[in-house]
């Protein structure tokens, strides 16, 4: 079973790599979205550094959303989702693997790009470490919760906007705890509880979301 999971994950990543654009597009969107903020609120470095953590996290949420609506759609349309059903793995596990692949292909490149944007947003130097850590433990929740939205809208031709409406409210806890952790370090208070809660949200999402997403997919496959 572990072998099958490994093969499936590699297959998914290979697909994402071959389609290529998705990772690059997510990073490009992330960079542009963050750059818009100084242009919108003005270039004062104090203000920018005060909102840096929030801006970066919000931009991460939006970038993670970008490719979510295609998470199952391509497979659903060309019928390979039905074929995935033939693999001797529970659909829940397949969903989890696909969400993990989304995280690796979309969120990981964003996280790698985030320090550059933290510099542009004039974030205090002590915030970088906790920012990377909070993104690492927080963003898996985005992929997994997002998988529910993607599964619910899989049969719709233009599900993208609907996915955002369904999923963004559910991203709020991750956003709050992620930003609070960074701000706590920047203002020299304790970040620990925020990071614990952030991790708890991710753990809960990873544990429960595959079940909801799988039942939504079964529904769409009839």
């Amino acid at each position: 079973m572990r072998r099958t999971v490994g093969i499936l994950l590699r297959h998914e990543l290979h697909l994402a790599w071959r389609q290529g654009s998705s990772s690059g597009m997510a990073v490009a969107f992330f960079v542009i979205a963050v750059v818009l903020f100084p242009l919108g609120v003005g270039p004062e470095l104090n203000i920018l550094s005060r909102v840096s953590a929030g801006v970066i996290w919000v931009a991460v949420l939006l970038s993670a959303l970008l490719s979510l609506d295609r998470l199952f759609q391509a497979d659903f349309e060309d019928g390979s989702l039905d074929q995935l059903g033939l693999i001797p793995l529970p659909l829940e596990l397949i969903v989890a693997v696909k969400a993990a692949a989304h995280w690796i292909a979309t969120c990981l490149p964003i996280i790698v790009a985030s320090p550059v944007l933290a510099i542009l947003m004039n974030m205090g130097g002590e915030g970088f470490g906790v920012m990377l850590f909070s993104l690492l433990i927080g963003t898996p929740a985005l992929s997994f919760i997002g998988a529910i939205g993607a599964a619910l809208t899989v049969a719709m031709r233009r599900g993208g906007v609907l996915v955002s409406i369904l999923v963004l409210p559910l991203f709020i806890p991750t956003l709050i705890f992620g930003v609070s952790a960074i701000d706590a370090v920047l203002t020299q208070t304790v970040a620990g509880p925020n990071l614990l809660l952030l991790g708890a949200v991710t753990a809960l999402a990873m544990a429960l979301a595959p079940f909801a997403a799988a039942s939504a997919l079964r529904l769409a496959m009839g």
Partner: peptide
């Protein structure tokens, strides 16, 4: 689909409420 969404949302309500209070 709506039922699945409602249940997912309902599970999240206390978490969201807690995070917003935090």
């Amino acid at each position: 689909a709506a039922a699945i969404l409602a249940l997912v949302g309902f599970v999240n309500v206390p978490i969201i409420k807690f995070s917003v209070e935090w």
